[in-house]
Structures are given as C-alpha cells and as structure tokens.
Simulated assay, not measured.
Amino acid sequence: MSGVMVGRPAGAVQLAVGQSFTEYVQLTAVTGTGDREQKRARSLWCDPVGGDHPHGEAACRDIAFANGDFARLPGDSRKGVCGAGSELYDPVTVSATGVWERVTVDYQQTFENQCKLRVRTGLVFDL
C-alpha cells in the first residue's frame, strides 16, 4: 500500500456521526495452500476501538504496545511455547495494511503454523 489511506474500504463498519479514527488496519490471514487455501479478513480501528475484529480491545492494546510495528507485537506469553504438533508445517500468512499514528502500515509475514503465529502476535491475527 502506498500513500495515505483516505476514507474507509467497502464493507467497513460504519462509525457513529461525529466519530473519527486515528488508527486503522485491515488484517488478513491466509491458511492452507492450493485447493485448501482459506482467507479471513477483518477491519480494526483504534482510538476509538471499532471494526469487526473479534478481539478489538486486546488487538489495539498490543498494536499500541508495539508502537504500530507489527514485527514487535508482544505475542501471547500465556501460550508460552507450542506443544505437541508444533513441528507441523501448516503455513499461515498474515498481513496488515492501513495507518497507525499517521504512518502507513504495510506488514506481511508467514508463520509455520497457527500456534507459532499466536505466540508471536497474540490475538491481533486471531480473525
């Protein structure tokens, strides 16, 4: 994504009259490959929290903790390490595009499986 995003993408949740947002990201997660590929996408607004993300408050808190740098998300420390089956290769590719504190966000990363994604990114990509 280049430049500054203007307006909201189609399908975004409507803000109440008089509300505005300063942080917005479109999050996607693609699991599987080939015929088994599944894509999920959610919108997340922070300040005020909105959109259709199922864990909006927690996701906004984690993104704020990382100062908008998705490579520095705090992850889920309660999850600790992945247990049995963690060596299973079932890739999940996640992306975030939008604006955080007037800076364009364009993040993409592939993780070996859902468990490793959760350990590294917490609930942000739990779509």
Rank of each mutant, 00 (worst) to 15 (best):
S2P: 04
M5W: 10
P9F: 13
P9R: 14
A10H: 04
A10F: 08
A12M: 12
V13P: 08
Q14L: 13
Q14M: 10
L15C: 13
L15G: 11
A16T: 05
A16N: 03
A16K: 02
A16M: 05
V17I: 08
V17T: 14
V17D: 15
G18K: 05
G18N: 11
G18R: 07
Q19F: 13
Q19N: 14
Q19Y: 12
F21K: 07
T22R: 14
E23N: 07
Y24I: 10
Y24T: 11
V25E: 12
V25P: 12
Q26M: 11
Q26P: 05
L27F: 07
T28C: 08
T28F: 03
T28R: 13
T28I: 05
V30I: 00
G32K: 01
T33F: 00
G34Q: 03
G34S: 04
G34D: 01
G34N: 01
D35G: 03
E37M: 05
Q38I: 02
Q38R: 10
K39S: 04
R40N: 07
R40I: 00
R40Y: 03
R40L: 02
A41Q: 15
A41W: 09
R42Y: 01
S43P: 03
S43H: 15
L44K: 11
L44N: 12
L44T: 07
C46M: 09
P48F: 10
V49H: 11
D52I: 01
D52V: 02
D52F: 01
P54W: 05
P54Q: 06
P54S: 06
P54K: 08
P54T: 09
H55K: 14
E57T: 11
E57F: 10
A59H: 09
A59V: 09
A59L: 12
C60F: 08
C60P: 11
R61T: 13
I63K: 08
I63D: 06
A64F: 09
A64Q: 06
A64C: 05
F65E: 07
A66P: 11
A66R: 12
N67H: 14
N67R: 15
A71G: 10
R72K: 15
L73W: 09
L73K: 08
L73M: 09
L73F: 05
P74N: 08
D76W: 07
S77F: 06
R78F: 13
R78T: 14
R78Q: 15
G80M: 04
G80A: 06
C82P: 07
G85Q: 12
L88W: 03
L88G: 02
L88P: 01
P91V: 00
V94N: 00
T97A: 11
W100Q: 04
E101L: 14
E101N: 15
R102V: 13
V103E: 12
T104D: 02
T104R: 10
V105I: 07
V105P: 05
D106C: 04
D106M: 05
Y107F: 15
Q108R: 15
Q109S: 02
T110L: 00
T110P: 00
T110F: 00
T110H: 00
F111K: 04
F111H: 04
E112T: 02
E112H: 01
N113V: 04
Q114L: 05
C115E: 12
K116M: 11
K116H: 13
L117C: 03
L117H: 03
R118C: 04
R118M: 02
R120K: 15
R120N: 13
T121N: 10
T121K: 10
T121Q: 12
L123D: 13
V124I: 13
F125Q: 04
D126I: 08
D126A: 15
L127H: 14
